[in-house]
Every structure is written in structure tokens, then in C-alpha cells.
């Protein structure tokens, strides 16, 4: 999904205006003309100027490029599904790891993604188990990162 300069310029302009409007509600340091809104307002002005300049240049150049160009992967269902699976697996980890623990959650994330990418099932499961144990030992045991624990796998810690 590729935007041309005209569309990107418009997006930047709208974002700039939105940031500026939202920054109007921020308070200043008591007795000063500067405060929480100063930086967002400066960024907004920068964005508005950039947006206008991009729109101007695109209009002058005739904006020959299509406004929205779809990458080849967008048209094929498989890459889109794979990308969505990858994102969904991270969401699954965030939701499930505190309840079921690091080891089962990470095993699911790695094995399912490998299978989605057409790795042979035996390889996917074997590599996932090995990687899972190595990561748990390195982070959980050696570096003392408090990874979510599983009741039945307490011996790993």
C-alpha cells in the first residue's frame, strides 16, 4: 500500500492540524508563555509546513504517480493471512502468557508461525521447543527477567 506525495502530504497536513488543535488544551508553566503545549505545537507547525510543501510540489509535478499503489502481496491472500497471523500471535502472547506462562505461550507463537510459513511440522515443533527452552534459560534464569511462570514447569526456573 503505497501513497503518492499528494496523499502523504494531505495526511501530514491533517495530522499537523490535529496535533495543533489537541495541543491547545495543554497548560503552560505558571507565569511563562511556554509549557506542555510548546513542543506539540512546534511539531504541528513543522508538519503543516511539510504537508503544504509536499502537496504543492505534487500539484506542480502533476502527481503522475497513482494516488494509492497496492503492493503485489496485498492482492494475494496468503501473505496477508501470514502477516495477520504474525500480528495475532503477538496479541495472543500478550493476553495468554500471564495466565498460562512463558513456555507454553512462546511455544504456540513460534510453532504456529513456522507452520504458517510452511515449515515441516516436525522441524517446527522441535525447533520451537529448543528455542523456547534456550530463551527461557537465557532470560529467565541467567538474566533474571521475570518471565511469566507456568505452575507445571516450575523446575525450569
Amino acid at each position: 500500500m503505497k501513497f503518492n506525495d499528494l496523499l502523504l502530504g494531505l495526511l501530514v497536513l491533517v495530522a499537523g492540524v490535529a496535533i495543533y488543535v489537541s495541543a491547545l488544551g495543554f497548560t503552560d508553566i505558571p507565569g511563562q508563555a511556554y509549557g506542555a503545549g510548546t513542543m506539540p505545537r512546534a511539531i504541528a507547525l513543522f508538519a503543516v509546513c511539510l504537508g503544504l510543501s509536499m502537496i504543492g510540489r505534487a500539484v506542480v509535478a502533476g502527481a503522475r504517480m497513482p494516488r494509492l499503489e497496492l503492493a503485489p502481496w496485498v492482492r494475494a491472500p496468503r501473505p496477508v493471512v501470514s502477516a495477520l497471523v504474525a500480528i495475532a500471535l503477538v496479541v495472543f502472547y500478550i493476553a495468554a502468557a500471564p495466565a498460562i506462562g512463558f513456555v507454553p505461550a512462546s511455544l504456540v507463537v513460534m510453532a504456529v508461525l513456522m507452520l504458517t510459513l510452511r515449515t515441516r511440522p516436525v522441524t517446527a515443533i522441535a525447533v520451537s521447543i529448543a528455542a523456547c527452552v534456550v530463551i527461557q534459560q537465557a532470560f529467565g534464569r541467567l538474566l533474571l527477567v521475570p518471565l511469566p511462570r507456568s505452575e507445571f514447569l516450575g523446575f525450569l526456573w
Binding site: I94, S106, L117, T119, V127, A131, V145
Partner: peptide, 30 residues
């Protein structure tokens, strides 16, 4: 890559978690 990328994703998850030890780091990462 089909084997390496899922492992990298897992490292990303754990690395993001390790900064503050909260799942919020993973949300930010995503």
C-alpha cells in the same frame, strides 16, 4: 528465514518485555 523469523519474533517479544518487565513493552513493540 521461515524458521529464523518466528524465533526472532520471540526474541523481540522477550527483549521488549525485559525493559520494564511488563507486557506493555510488547504492545508498544507491536
Amino acid at each position: 528465514a521461515r524458521v529464523l523469523m518466528p524465533i526472532i519474533l520471540m526474541f523481540c517479544i522477550v527483549g521488549s518485555f525485559a525493559i520494564n518487565n511488563t507486557p506493555f513493552g510488547i504492545t508498544l513493540m507491536l
